[in-house]
Amino acid sequence: MSDREKFDLDAYLERIGWAGGARADLATLRGVHLAHALALPFENLDPVSGRVPSLEPADVVAKMVHGRRGGYCYEHNTLLRLALEALGFRVTPLAGRVVLGADTPESRPRTHAMLRVEVPGEPLPYLADVGFGAIGALLAPVPLTVGEEFEDGGRRHRFTRLPHEGPLELWALQAYDGVARDWVSQYAFTLEPFTAADFEVFNWHVGSNPRSPFTRRPYLQRTTAERHLALDGARLTETRADGTVAVRELAGEAEARRVVAEEFGIEVPEGLELLGRLSGG
């Protein structure tokens, strides 16, 4: 039995709160993508606990659909790929370099996962990505074309091409920063397809390397219609829909566990002490 045949689509749609169409069309793709992005948080508590997250479909479903957990990009986009394929879409996994804060695209390895989705009746494929842990992340899929600006869930994105020496065109997803009033590149990628074996290697590196930021401190994100929450170490940042930002430091273990449980909707893994991690210990 294939992953598509074993995937419990109804349980997934219930988990993300999507009660709209369940067909391979653009309205369903947009609706499911947005519902997923708003329902399931980004989190790295397994790597912080010393465990590399499993990308086996059954494990991803058990953790994110049936458990009170989120995940990072490989888990999120594995789950979305399974759902979209069950709905009848043709999906190709892609890999990118996170260039947000980087000097050059080449200074970062390919560690981010995203999806190229073909939509029946649409002339262009779409980029879908529910696993980018930043406020510049996509909330809805956008067509793969350069020269247009897209509004997705209240955010603004566009694609551009970056100069490089490789044989394939290098795309960059840019998000509009309303504070800086400028476009900021989030990640760069080519349209070369990647396989589950590739992502197993990426996942092992990101989830186990002591130099990886995801193994060193908790990093959580959650987006709602009213605000975006980010927990980076001990710092909690709230960005509201009107652009106002509030930042504060968490005081201790009890507050950290309460915030993770109540604000992010995540069950803290057994044995993980947040206090030491959040205070840099």
Score class of each variant (00 low, 15 high):
81 R>C: 11
230 A>Y: 05
207 G>F: 10
53 P>E: 07
44 N>S: 03
54 S>H: 10
192 E>I: 01
156 R>F: 14
92 T>Y: 02
281 G>M: 01
274 L>P: 03
66 H>Y: 15
280 G>R: 06
239 T>D: 07
232 D>M: 12
248 R>W: 08
241 A>E: 14
275 L>K: 09
179 V>I: 05
165 E>P: 01
162 L>Y: 00
165 E>I: 00
110 R>Q: 08
145 T>E: 14
193 P>T: 05
261 A>C: 11
5 E>N: 11
11 A>F: 07
170 L>D: 01
269 P>C: 11
223 T>M: 15
152 D>H: 10
165 E>C: 01
195 T>W: 12
278 L>K: 07
110 R>D: 01
274 L>F: 09
257 R>C: 13
255 E>Y: 01
44 N>F: 09
95 A>K: 10
259 V>D: 13
225 A>V: 07
201 V>Y: 10
87 L>C: 14
189 F>Y: 07
70 G>V: 04
104 T>S: 10
21 G>I: 06
171 W>P: 02
67 G>R: 10
82 L>K: 09
6 K>L: 15
130 V>N: 03
278 L>P: 04
276 G>F: 03
239 T>F: 08
125 P>E: 15
182 D>T: 15
14 E>W: 09
9 L>C: 13
188 A>C: 02
19 A>G: 04
157 H>T: 04
38 L>Q: 09
87 L>S: 11
64 M>S: 07
75 E>I: 02
79 L>S: 09
145 T>G: 11
266 I>C: 04
100 L>F: 11
4 R>L: 13
58 A>W: 05
268 V>P: 06
109 P>V: 06
111 T>M: 10
185 S>M: 06
240 R>I: 06
244 T>S: 15
110 R>I: 00
180 A>Q: 14
6 K>E: 13
211 R>T: 13
44 N>I: 06
133 G>I: 00
240 R>V: 07
230 A>Q: 14
205 H>L: 11
61 V>H: 06
217 R>C: 09
54 S>P: 06
222 R>Y: 01
84 L>V: 05
219 Y>M: 15
203 N>A: 08
138 L>H: 09
197 A>T: 05
146 V>S: 07
276 G>Q: 07
19 A>K: 13
189 F>Q: 04
160 T>H: 09
269 P>H: 03
